[in-house]
Design a protein around this nucleic acid. Sequence first.
DNA 1: CCCTCCGTTGACAAC
DNA 2: GGTTGTCAACGGAGG
Length: 795
Amino acid sequence: MRLSSQSLTRFSISSFHSYPNMPSGSNSLMWFRKGLRIHDNPSLEYAAKNSTQVYPVFVIDPHYMKPDPTAFSPGSKLAGLNRIRFLLESLVDLDSSLKKLGSRLLVLHGDPGDVVIRCLKEWDIKKLCFEYDTDPYYQALDAKVQSYAFENSIEVFSPVSHTLFNPVEIIQKNGGNPPMNCLSFSKVAGEPHWLSSSLFTSLSMIPPVGDVRNLEVSDVPTVKQLGYEDTQEEEPPIFKGGESEALRRLKESTKDKEWVAKFEKPNTDPSAFLRPATTMLSPYLKFGCLSSRYMYQCIKEIEKEFKNHTSPPVSLLGQLFWRDFFYTVGFGTPNFDHMRGNKICRQIPWNNDDELLAAWRDARTGFPWIDAIMVQLQKWGWIHHLARHSVACFLTRGDLFIHWEKGRDVFERLLVDSDWAINNGNWLWLSCSSFFYQYHRIYSPVSFGKKYDPTGAYIRHFLPVLKDMPKEYIYEPWTAPLSIQTKANCIIGKDYPKPIISHETASKECKGRMAAAYELNKEKNGMVSDEDLQNLRTRVKDQSQVTGSRRLKQKRPNQITCRRLSSHVWATQAGFHPDPPSSPPATTGCGHPATTTITRPNKQSQGFYGSLSVVSVTPPPLPPPSSFTVVVVSSPMVSTPNQWYDFLEQLATGLRRHRSTSSYPDLREQTPQWNQPNTLNRYLFSSFADSRASRSRVKDSQEPKDEHDDVWLLLKEGQPHKFLGCLQYIMYLEVWTQLDHQTVMVMKMNDIVNGNSSSFMWWNKNPVTLRGKIAINRYHWLHILDALNNQWLQV
DNA sequence: CCCTCCGTTGACAAC
DNA sequence: GGTTGTCAACGGAGG
Ligand SMILES: Cc1cc2nc3c(=O)[nH]c(=O)nc-3n(C[C@H](O)[C@H](O)[C@H](O)COP(=O)(O)OP(=O)(O)OC[C@H]3O[C@@H](n4cnc5c(N)ncnc54)[C@H](O)[C@@H]3O)c2cc1C
């Protein structure tokens, strides 16, 4: 952790095309690209070893200063000012660190491939060292330089130090393809081999820089010298490039150890701008001012101190996994940065609408939340991850239906942390083109921000024109009455634009298009032609045709009719009908009509219907006290309507087997009600409560907040639980509660969405084990009741 | 082929 | 952010 505690342990490095036995007394070239740091820099360390002279070089590629053809606005360069400023600051810092080690940074200009090859020639280099890089830009460059080096017997040393793991290795280990989700990525990756090595090397001196001869070498230029207008920076500056600042900020971020250990990315606040909710280390990681491996070690160290720290993918460590994940997938996927020719990318007929695109890019959408984010992006060069989600979703699948590549380009130019693999990967993600496919989950340009920042402080800060808009209207200023707009000095349509689209209709339309596009991709097995896309585009334009031509998925009816046979069996068992009736009655023993319908619940959104255990109770022999038996029927996890349907049908026809029986003492008091033959006593109780009640009970230490809705069932280890009361909904409970009976019954269900939450797991894992407290909701109750009625009455 | 499980981050309404 | 269930509605991995 501490910078001063440099150890002599050498970090083990993997090398590419390295020639192990180097002649000593030679010139080395240390080619900096990313990895603008001294710490954890195996290439620099290697260059410094056994060399008489080391030339540390950075080449500025004028390509990045070319105008961005997609930016429309004059003077916009491919790389935004903020990023270039960050880079130059980082170079200055690097230079000064090198100077402390007796060296300095040589800055050259031109096509890096050509320049480096000229350096190799001119300076008689024997050893070329640079950090391995997976970006296509560097892959192409490196291939060129390496082949020159190979022909001229120059040793090339190119270790992996930008990422935690070696993407090449991960892909190999995974059988030739990159893992496609975070979990499988971390499984394949395992523990990094350098976990307990010291990443601070023993560099105390770097051999001197040799004569630069005929090459034009400069100091680190200013942004102006690179052709940028040096406009006013934010005050105080948001970032300051460089390793020293990176390490300082890392220390700062990790000072609050608990914050690090409890970090949960999805719960961080995108609207926080006074003190942003995440580390803001991304630019430092992007340029390698900060080693991701060192950051990893620091976090790991902190996590050791906390028992219940969070875990990937949501933890802070998990964020670094995501970074590696995208690097790996980006490296292993041809055409990763395009839709066409990209195997993992859904082919979607995005619209071409430069006006909408420009409105989005220039913060003129008329949605303050979106526009404020775009302003922050321009000013700061950094926005929170969820803010990126908001605007990326808005541009692509959520509202404007514009190609993610266009948004990617804007981000690439404006983000200080803009990073080829991460940027493209996340745009693929957000546009539902890959990795993530739930295109119906759309961020609202109104509600999403409101959730975090109800008063709109974030909007007021970045869109001062709206600063006096009352908070009721700040997210939807077009709904403000004119008098209020006047008072707020902001007339919508004049001082601030009207919304360019209606979110409601636009998002609906987007969903439809996504559905159609997905269907097309499935149909064509991913081999979608330009023509197909064009067809779809025109087809989608005509709404009526879309619905008309959409092939409906085969659907099973969501209602089935079951015939209730008779109450004979049940009633006989109950001792209520000593003489079975000769013909099936018109109603069931419970008074239901002889036929009934079962409506399928339509729980599709999360992909689960929930698991269900049903208990029936055999009729207790009377008089009590005695014991009676609880029978549990458990369902499989059902995840489709049809499965649910099948399950109910099985219950109804008795095909579903009982899984277990247990006996419980019957502690009920004898009451007249239970002794009456033919009365409607069901031994199944709707222990009914909002499941929040059961949830709130899950933590044993916690006292329930609201007993009114709460139900405790008394099935622990054969011992009745104490019944705390649930009065509201179902008569039986009331009766029992009033009588202070111990009661039995079980129904469980539903864990569903949060099935991974440990407090719920036991339900899922042991649906037939009777313990704990159970509550069901009305919805399920109806279905269970229905199913059981059928089951009981079946011969 | 079907199934089962699972996936860092939705809106909204109802409770 | 109290939690839950619904919404026309997801795909990929692994058995
Ligand atoms: C559309 C879109 C585009 C993005 N483009 C970029 C980009 O060009 N460069 C970039 O670094 N991040 C990008 N991200 C990912 C993420 O938003 C940023 O890394 C993060 O917001 C940076 O802030 P932080 O350093 O405070 O993050 P923290 O939450 O503090 O995370 C620490 C580090 O983990 C890494 N990380 C975090 N989230 C991700 C992620 N989702 N994917 C990969 N790595 C991650 C970053 O290196 C980050 O610095 C993009 C996200 C989206 C949705």
